[in-house]
Design a protein around this nucleic acid. Structure first.
Lengths: 205, 205
DNA sequence: AATATAATTAAACGATTGTTTAATTTAAAC
DNA sequence: GTTTAAATTAAACAATCGTTTAATTATATT
């Protein structure tokens, strides 16, 4: 079995599902876009839903790995840990807005319960690490007495808000239609600075 | 034509679409849930898509009205205006998480382009008002030199993050499965305080 | 009470859905 | 070069989709 072709189909599936949703994407749509026969999807993945699971699975570890690295780096101050995590979140999310949108779609609906729970698990795992850092910072009095869970919601929520709709992002930022904020390093830096500075002023000033 | 029944169908449609998505909700699903004949949906609304447009339209003005009131209240300081808007946002969004999820779904996909643009228009309208308040505050030096557009993203993003998935919210907040954060006034206050205080410390401290 | 309009129904429409089949082509193994 | 397995194809599958029809019931008008 050609792994290349499997990955090719998954890649096209992310593009289509991000654009039209899972139920809005038909196997025939996908087959046409990936330039394969309709039967190939079921041949490779078993079913449309299993393709979807393979899709999510494939990139699931992508995020959690690096957070572990930050946590286990004992030489960093709590605020430095947060800064690294914010930066890493933004780099990774902005690198693949379509995948992020697919996950957000599944978070919004409860249609596929086990998929819903799986994605919640992925996010919660990171959330707890971040919340733990904030709680420790508060206990050791280097952080103000903030609401750790909602600080996490603000960090992830800000990024998600920006990623949610490119057209909305452009409209609010007053940018031309052909501008791509997600691949622009300057915008990436702008977003990183905003969240870091907001968190700094709230937690330590 | 019974307006009651129209509204009844719309109400059930919001519930179903929030749960399963627009494409994931069939007319027969909806007819069963609303306890009407399948033909009634097309009889009342013309098509599935027009029902959806009626659904969005019905509550579109809900939010924009009150922001106007806050803006035109000249007796308020800029920071007081922001506090009122944050409080109003939270009250109105938490009152109907399902409707908010439907809008978020449509923001994520570009399937129905005019619907996508319509919702972007609704959000952007409010965004510009809020950004304007922040810009004025910066100009008159009562606010720090922050990034107005991204402050808006943080306010709306935090609320959206909380509303996105009840199960995720419960998991991160470490609450029991039967707890409903959205109808709990204490949680509402907690969320309001968090965003207001974060914005305060970032904008004026 | 008779008439006209509105509301509601069950049944059917063609189109599209995900999936499977059976035949054929391609590649690998010996 | 023959055999075996994997990959690919077009065609068909039953199920479901949004929608429409034509008949019936309910409501309102005169």
């Amino acid at each position: 079995m050609s792994i290349d072709k499997r990955d090719h189909i998954i890649k096209k599936a992310v593009e289509l599902i991000a654009e039209k949703g899972f139920e809005g994407t038909s196997i025939r749509d996908l087959a046409a876009k990936a330039d394969v026969n309709v039967a190939m999807v079921n041949y490779y993945f078993g079913s449309k839903e299993k393709l979807f699971e393979a899709l999510v699975e494939k990139r699931a570890l992508f995020m959690s790995q690096f957070i572990e690295n930050v946590i286990t780096n004992k030489s960093l101050l709590p605020i430095e840990q947060l800064d690294r995590i914010i930066e890493g979140y933004i780099i990774r999310f902005l690198a693949d807005p379509q995948y992020h949108r697919v996950l957000q779609q599944e978070l919004l609906i409860t249609q596929r319960e086990q998929m819903h729970e799986k994605i919640i698990g992925l996010i919660a795992k990171n959330a707890f690490e971040i919340i733990q850092i904030i709680k420790k910072g508060i206990k050791s009095k280097v952080f103000n007495k903030v609401d750790p869970e909602l600080v996490f919601a603000s960090i992830l929520g800000t990024i998600s808000q920006v990623l949610m709709s490119r057209a909305l992002c452009l409209k609010i930022m007053n940018k031309p239609r052909d501008y791509d904020p997600y691949s622009d390093k300057k915008f990436q830096k702008r977003l990183t600075n905003h969240i870091q500075q907001m968190v700094h002023s709230y937690l330590i000033k």
